[in-house]
């Protein structure tokens, strides 16, 4: 029995270089990314459905761009600026697809370049969204508790913004992993400063969660420890995770699936929240 087990372990190690495929001939990682996107799409659908039913209920009271055009009501959302932002996100989707293509042609330098351009695109999107939020909150005095318009706007665009933020970190970690050299399952990157950094991140997360943010009400109590401590931890953990993959093209393609999904959701969100 133990001999068989030993033999199996040995043969698994021997074939470890071959990518893992499901019985349908599709790589395992891709199938699971699609399953994740499927449940994420369901989550967004819940948000969209809630938004649409709230809007139908509000009827003509809901501020819209056409009210704004006729000067009836003040419409706080800046459509031209967001249209440019949409364009930036579409551009980043194209650069991502170019990165995937470069990876399938095993051109790592071009892959890294296109990935970096995508990260820059995502960061510009986040920067514009930050500017938009601060304008809406400080100048127009919008806030989660003010009205259904404000609450649905911030929850929909904020939930999407968290996706873009995660995507930027995801792609940046992948870029750094590729830049460090070819991905290799048997490589052991075990640097003391990375381990120390991860420990510090964990400490910061726990400290912020039980410490100073406890007095701050609501979302910041959760969000600030997540962004300041947990996100850098997962980021560094992600780099070493990517370093131990074997098929570069597959890893980049799976990252691309996530990024395109974020773009796809924004296309629908932009129409529903801003234009209609």
């Amino acid at each position: 029995m133990s001999e068989i087990a030993l033999h199996n372990t040995h043969s698994e190690e021997h074939h470890a270089e071959a990518p893992v495929y499901t019985s349908t001939g599709t790589p395992m990682g891709k199938v699971f990314m699609w399953l994740f996107l499927c449940q994420d799409a369901l989550m967004f659908m819940g948000f969209f459905a809630a938004y649409i039913s709230v809007r139908i209920g509000a009827g003509d009271l809901w501020p819209g761009p056409e009210n704004h055009a006729h000067g009836i009501e003040h419409y706080p959302l800046d459509i031209p600026l967001t249209a440019i932002n949409t364009f930036v996100l579409i551009c980043s989707s194209v650069t991502m697809v170019m990165a995937v293509q470069a990876a399938t042609f095993k051109n790592i330098k071009k892959t890294i370049m296109w990935l970096l351009v995508t990260v820059v695109g995502g960061s510009i999107f986040l920067g514009v969204q930050y500017g938009e939020y601060s304008h809406l909150i400080l100048k127009d005095h919008m806030g989660m508790g003010n009205s259904l318009f404000d609450a649905t706007f911030f929850s929909l665009t904020g939930f999407h913004g968290i996706h873009v933020f995660s995507g930027v970190l995801y792609l940046l970690a992948l870029t750094i992993a590729l830049w460090m050299g070819p991905l290799d399952k048997h490589k052991k990157d075990n640097y003391w400063f990375i381990n120390l950094f991860r420990l510090v991140c964990l400490g910061v997360t726990v400290f912020l969660f039980i410490g100073p943010t406890k007095t701050w009400p609501g979302l910041p109590h959760v969000l600030i420890p997540l962004v300041a401590g947990a996100a850098p931890y997962i980021f560094v953990r992600g780099i070493s995770w990517f370093r131990k993959r074997q098929d570069t093209a597959e890893v980049v393609e799976i990252a691309g699936l996530y990024w395109h999904f974020v773009d796809l959701i924004w296309i629908i969100l932009f129409t529903l929240v801003y234009l209609i």
Partner: peptide, 16 residues
Amino acid sequence: IALALVKAGLVAVYFM
């Protein structure tokens, strides 16, 4: 809504 669905479809079918 139709245009948004067409755009989302293009992204899913070609980019994804």
